[in-house]
Computed example of a mutant assay.
Amino acid sequence: MNHQQFETWVKAIGAAWVNRDPQAAADLFTPDATYQENPFEPPLQGRPAILKYWGDVSTQENITFRHEILEVTEHIGFAHWSVELTRIPSSKRVKLDGIFAASFHPNETRCHEFREWWTRQEGPSSRRVALITGASRGLGVTLATCLAGQNFDLILTARGAESLEQTTGQLRQYGTTILALAGDIAEPAHQRRLIEAAESLGRLDVLVNNASELGPSPMPTLAEMPLAAFRHIYEVNVVAPLALTQSALPLLKANHGLVVNLSSDAAVGGYAGWGGYGSSKAALDLLSRTWANELEEAGVGVVSVDPGDMRTVMHQQAFPGEDISDRPEPNVT
């Protein structure tokens, strides 16, 4: 067993944990392996017992695994590991931290004797936390990637569950906690779920109201705007950010947080066909300025940001059938 082989084995057991795959974990041990999780418990004997023990991962989610190789000898590897996870259904955050020794027979890459010692800590994460709406594509993905790279734990939401899951998978490489909750930001019940997720992490430092509703495509003039569509634009672009900010205030105040509301030049442009979307962003800009004045003494910052034209799905919907390849990608921001 050399350093690279042991590193590969440790990464594999970490991946089995993150992916909640007991069988993948059990397959890393020989059929007659001994598995002892602490010196005071009788060891598990054999792969079936190990598989049963690892079945506990079904009660866990949002798992992150980190490790450090301490020493590797001819037949034994030592590693330090730490895991953060959310317990189901309590939503409690748990941190596990420990070391293990894994023994291997000559020319064998499966472990035959495993011993570990670990501690448990339950409570909030010490890392900063950001909540981003509209996080499954475009600028939302860019912002999530930026914050994950700065070691933020993330709460991500968007309507598309599949694309949100893909985004989450891409961000796992940063090793931060990611809570991905698909749903409609205009629904009060979903707003409550997002705040509960932040509460489970123990804090909220940044709220990014990025989710936006463009309205019908092609975009109608105000004279032709369906009132139901107009109301929905305001529910998503104005009411939802207001409601989410209201609910998040206790957490934001506790950490002197920041609210970022995504706006548009359509808020001031008066462009034909952009009346529904543009007026909603004008309203959001006014909310942002008012919030900033009202929350200054509480130490909560509120800003409204116009990222400019970008090559996104929503921008293409605003210009159906037109070539928008001259617009920059969201990561240019």
Rank of each mutant, 00 (worst) to 15 (best):
P22A: 03
Q23E: 13
Q23P: 02
A25R: 04
A25Y: 13
A26K: 08
A26C: 01
D27K: 13
D27E: 15
D27G: 05
L28C: 15
L28R: 15
F29V: 04
P31R: 10
D32H: 10
D32N: 13
Y35I: 04
Y35P: 02
Y35L: 06
Q36E: 02
Q36M: 03
E37T: 15
E37W: 06
E37Y: 01
N38P: 08
N38G: 09
P39Q: 09
F40N: 10
E41Q: 13
E41V: 13
E41F: 11
E41A: 14
P42T: 12
P42D: 14
P43Y: 07
L44P: 15
L44R: 14
Q45G: 05
G46F: 04
G46L: 04
R47W: 01
P48T: 09
A49F: 01
I50M: 01
L51D: 10
L51C: 07
K52Y: 00
K52D: 09
Y53C: 01
Y53L: 10
W54F: 13
W54I: 06
G55W: 07
D56S: 12
V57M: 10
S58A: 14
S58N: 05
T59W: 06
T59G: 13
Q60L: 15
E61K: 14
T64F: 12
F65T: 04
F65L: 07
R66Q: 15
R66Y: 02
H67I: 01
H67V: 04
H67Q: 12
E68F: 09
E68P: 03
I69C: 04
I69Y: 10
I69P: 06
I69R: 06
L70H: 07
E71C: 00
V72S: 10
T73E: 06
E74M: 00
E74C: 02
H75F: 08
H75I: 12
H75D: 14
H75W: 07
H75S: 15
G77A: 04
H80N: 14
W81Q: 05
W81M: 05
V83E: 11
E84F: 04
E84V: 14
L85N: 07
L85Y: 13
L85E: 07
T86V: 11
R87C: 01
R87F: 05
R87Y: 00
I88L: 09
I88Q: 00
I88T: 11
I88Y: 00
P89N: 00
P89D: 03
P89E: 00
S90E: 14
R93F: 12
V94T: 12
V94E: 06
L96C: 01
L96N: 03
D97R: 11
G98R: 09
G98E: 09
G98W: 05
G98M: 08
F100Q: 12
F100L: 15
A102E: 01
A102V: 08
F104W: 06
F104R: 09
F104G: 02
H105T: 06
H105D: 09
